[in-house]
Design a protein around this nucleic acid. Sequence first.
DNA 1: TCATTTACCTGATTA
DNA 2: CTAATCAGGTAAATG
Lengths: 215, 215
Amino acid sequence: MALTAARESRGAEGGGGGVELSRGGNGGNGEERIKREHMFDKVVTPSDVGKLNRLVVPKQFAERHILPRLLGGAAKAACSGAVLRFEDGRGGGRAWAFRFSYWGSSQSYVMTKGWSAFVRDRRLAAGDTVSFCRAGARLFIDCRRRGAGIVASAPMTRLLVPAIVPQVVTLMPQQSTSSDERAARGRCVRLFGVDLELAGAEPLPLDLQLALMRR
Amino acid sequence: MALTAARESRGAEGGGGGVELSRGGNGGNGEERIKREHMFDKVVTPSDVGKLNRLVVPKQFAERHILPRLLGGAAKAACSGAVLRFEDGRGGGRAWAFRFSYWGSSQSYVMTKGWSAFVRDRRLAAGDTVSFCRAGARLFIDCRRRGAGIVASAPMTRLLVPAIVPQVVTLMPQQSTSSDERAARGRCVRLFGVDLELAGAEPLPLDLQLALMRR
DNA sequence: TCATTTACCTGATTA
DNA sequence: CTAATCAGGTAAATG
C-alpha cells in the first residue's frame, strides 16, 4: 500500500480516458479540476523506436487530435514544423517537445525532433504503447510496457533496472489506474522493456533475447 | 629561375603568411605587390567530396576568415546565402563561386552551391587538402593531393603550418604542369599543409596514413 | 519524373 | 562530467 501510494504520481501512466488532474488529497470541488482526456495510443513499431528518430502518427489520430490544435486546423503544409510540447504523464514537471510534421512523400504524419530523447528516456521498445492525452490546453505523453511475456534468465548486459520495478509495482493493487490496461499480469519480470511471465518459465532462447535487445 | 617564374601564378599555393604575388626578378618597388595570405586549409572528408555537395567549413576558420569579409562581420544569419568568388589558385583566370551558408540546426558553416563543380574539376578526393587564401580583396582556392607521408611522429592532427612550406613547393623544379598531382615530388611531400622533406623517403605505412587522414 | 539544391537533424567524438 | 563540433545523414523544395 505504501508502495501504491508512492506510485501515485505515476498512476496516470497509460492515461485512460478521463483521469483527473490534481488528484492530490482534496476530494473537494471539481471546479478547477481539469479532466485529462485520452487522445490516442499507439503500439510503437521497431521503426518508431529505432534509429529513424521518428514516430509515425497514424493519420486518423493526427487529423483527429493534432491537426485541430494547430493553427485552427490549417492545411497539412502549414502544420509542418510545428513543435508540440507534451508534459510527462507521470508528473514531475518534465516535458517533451516534439516536432510534428507531415511527410508528403509518404503521406504520413510524424513526430521527429525530440522523439528519440523520449524513446531513450523511457526505454521505449517495440510493442510498447505510447499514449497521448490532453487536459485543456496541456498535452501529456506517457507510455506503458507491452504486456506479454515469457520468462527470463535475465542475462542482460543492458538490464534496465529501473524499468523492472515500475512494472512490478503496476501489479500492485491500485486505484484509479487507467482502464486500457495491460495484458494479463501475474508473475512477471521485464527484460529489455518486454514483460515476461514467469509462469512455467523456460529460459528465453538466446537469439530471441538478442532480438529483443536490439534497439 | 625560369621554373620558379613558371610557378609564380601558383606560387602562393598553400599561401604562407605573406607570399608575394608577382615575385618576378625585380627586387623593385613593393607598391603594387599584393601579398597572398593564407587563410585556412581543410583536409576534406568523404562527405565533403561526396554527394552531399557541400564543404563543411570548420567554425573557427569560418569565423576567423570568412565572416569578417561579409557584411562587415555581421551576424551569422545575415551571412547565409552569401556567394564568395575564389580564383583558381593555379592561375589561368578561372574562378569558382561558392555559396556560403550557416546551417543553424547543426551550427555549422558550409560552402554549398558551386562546391561540387570544384570537387569534380579538381578530382578532389577524401584526404586531399583544400586551401584558401587571399590577396587583398581577391580570394583564391587551391588544393593538393593527400600526400603520403611523414617520418615524424606527427602528433599534430591539426597542425596548421602552411606558412612554413608553401615556399618549399614553390621552389620545386617543375614546368607549369597542371600540377594538382604533385604527390611526392622530389624529395618533398606535403602533408596537410605541411611540406616535409623526405630525406630517406619511404612510403608512409598505411595505418599511419589512415590515422593521419582522420581528422 | 528525376536530379540537384536547400535546409534540416543527430550521434560520435572531442575539448 | 558537460558542451561544442561536425561528419554523415534525411526530407523537402526546386527546376
